Simulated assay, not measured.
Amino acid sequence: MPLTTSDRVPETVTDPMLWRMAVRVAADHQPDPHHPGRCANLRCVHESYPCPPLRDAQRAQQVATRPHRFTPGRARVTAVAQRFVGWFRPTRPVPAPPAPVPLPRRQPMAALRLAA
């Protein structure tokens, strides 16, 4: 069976089976030409368009596709960020940290052996 245009999987698809299933479900659940607000599929009688199976198929297509890559390069800081400089300064003065207490000097091991 030859591949048709709808069966060719784009390069961004990471899960081809899920993507193909979603394409087929989306093709089966089109709006009714006589009632545009309704789904034409017989399984969706009295369902408004887009029906739940079509919404699920659209979500499956999104999940089966690799997310868009960000543009490489460095992020730029805009001038808007400059107006918030110093915004998180404390309202009360911060007390100075206490001065470090000097620890008693330890005796070398040789001095301890002589004392014993």
Score class of each variant (00 low, 15 high):
Ala111Lys: 03
Pro90Met: 05
Pro108Ser: 14
Glu47Leu: 10
Leu114Cys: 05
Arg92Trp: 05
Asp28Lys: 04
Ala26Gly: 12
Met1Gly: 13
Arg74Cys: 10
Gln62Ser: 04
Pro53Phe: 14
Thr71Val: 12
Arg105Val: 12
Met1Glu: 15
His35Arg: 15
Tyr49Leu: 02
Ala26His: 09
Pro36Cys: 04
Leu114Ser: 12
Ala22Leu: 08
Leu112Tyr: 11
Pro102Ala: 12
Gly86Arg: 12
Val13Leu: 13
Trp87Phe: 11
Leu112Trp: 12
Arg59Ile: 02
Gly37Asp: 13
Cys39Glu: 07
Glu11Val: 06
Ala60Pro: 01
Pro90Phe: 06
Ala75Ile: 13
Glu47Lys: 01
Pro53His: 10
Tyr49Asp: 02
Gln62Tyr: 02
Val25Cys: 12
Pro108Phe: 02
Ala111Leu: 09
Phe88Ile: 08
Ala40Gly: 06
Pro97Ala: 15
Arg113His: 07
Glu47Pro: 01
Ala96Lys: 01
Asp15Tyr: 15
Pro67Gln: 13
Phe70Ser: 07
Cys44Arg: 00
Ala79Phe: 00
Pro72Asp: 03
Thr71Lys: 08
Gln58Arg: 09
Phe84Asp: 11
Pro93Glu: 07
Ala64Tyr: 13
Leu103Cys: 06
Ala79Pro: 00
Met21Ala: 14
Gln62His: 07
Pro97Asp: 14
Leu18Cys: 14
Gly73Leu: 00
Gln61Met: 10
Pro50Met: 14
Pro31His: 08
Asp15Asn: 15
Trp19Met: 03
Thr71Ile: 10
Met21Arg: 15
Cys51His: 03
Pro31Phe: 02
Val9Asp: 15
Gln61Gly: 04
Met17Lys: 12
Leu112Ala: 13
Gly37Ile: 01
Phe70Thr: 09
